[in-house]
């Protein structure tokens, strides 16, 4: 289970207290390999530390109007649910504690921290079966900050905080620095091709689900293309301001398999964190 290995390496540093020696899985930090045991047994083993047992994760799933869009076969929401399902599964494998905040324009659901197969699978089922409704209107900034503020109080320190959203250009919530201090914040951005590149041509009579305006979108119009480029630029800026470290930014392309993208992210993050710890 390579993904599980990378997941462990990616999100935790090494703890201080030695717990036991466990079988090495591809993706685990090679530096933890206990060479003595490996030599004795003839297969790789690694040391496990106490800290690894207690890992708290949180997914802040912000289901804005941007989630109900897909220029291709899939909409962003499906990709986001894929991600949630994968994280749930990884948490089950590692017996980690996972809680989920599900925020839409009209509702807010908090799934209490749970651990283990039954609890987490139940949570995953609820989220995956949550009513699919096209919601017009953005999530209000006040509501977002309020939910974030509550989350700060609810979660233990050093929680791995996944913010799952499409991150449209907007103001950064004031509470955000506190979250950055307390938690390990990782941004998971769902990207439709239309969010990242300007289509060549096409004319659509459309409704903007973020504010309900009816309009005609003409990609052939250079002004529209220019404006869209500007919008993209703005979105990218917000994204980088929210998550300054490249290792904290995961961008999921709707059109590509979520599993593969998550795997590559974890791999990259592992390498970065190893480099950091070597420097120390």
């Amino acid at each position: 289970m390579a993904l599980a290995g990378f997941y462990r390496s990616a999100f935790r540093g090494r703890g201080v207290d030695f717990d036991q020696v466990v079988k090495y899985v591809y993706g685990d930090d090679v530096r933890t390999i206990d060479w003595n045991v490996t030599a004795r047994r003839g297969e790789p083993y690694r040391k496990k530390y106490i800290e690894e047992r207690e890992l708290s994760l949180h997914i802040f799933f912000e289901e804005g109007p941007g989630m109900f869009f897909g220029s291709g076969n899939r909409i962003c929401r499906e990709c986001a649910l894929d991600f949630i399902a994968l994280i749930c599964y990884l948490c089950v494998l590692n017996r980690d504690c996972l809680s989920i905040n599900h925020l839409t324009a009209s509702s807010h659901t908090f799934y209490k921290p749970g651990r283990g197969r039954s609890s987490l699978f139940a949570t995953a089922q609820k989220i995956l079966n949550s009513p699919y409704r096209v919601i017009s209107g953005q999530i209000e900034d006040t509501k977002l900050s309020q939910v974030l503020r509550t989350t700060v109080r609810l979660l233990p320190k050093h929680t791995i905080f996944f913010w799952l959203s499409d991150f449209p250009p907007r103001d950064i919530p004031k509470v955000w620095p506190i979250l950055q201090q307390r938690f390990v914040c990782i941004g998971v951005r769902i990207d439709d091709p239309w969010y990242t590149a300007t289509p060549r041509s096409g004319m659509f009579s459309a409704i903007d689900t973020s504010d309900g305006e009816t309009l005609t979108l003409d990609w052939g119009n250079p002004k529209v293309r220019r404006q869209h480029t500007q919008w993209r630029h703005c979105r990218e800026q917000i994204w980088k301001r929210l998550f300054p470290a490249a290792a904290d930014r995961l961008t999921l392309q709707v059109g590509q398999p979520t599993f593969k993208q998550l795997y590559e992210f974890l791999l990259r993050r592992t390498r970065l964190s190893q480099r950091c710890s070597l420097n120390i």
Binding site: P65, F68, I207, T214
Partner: peptide
């Protein structure tokens, strides 16, 4: 009945 595409943020893409 006019067929319309739901495109979030489309208004901010228009000049």
């Amino acid at each position: 009945q006019v067929h319309r595409v739901l495109i979030p943020y489309a208004a901010s893409w228009l000049p």
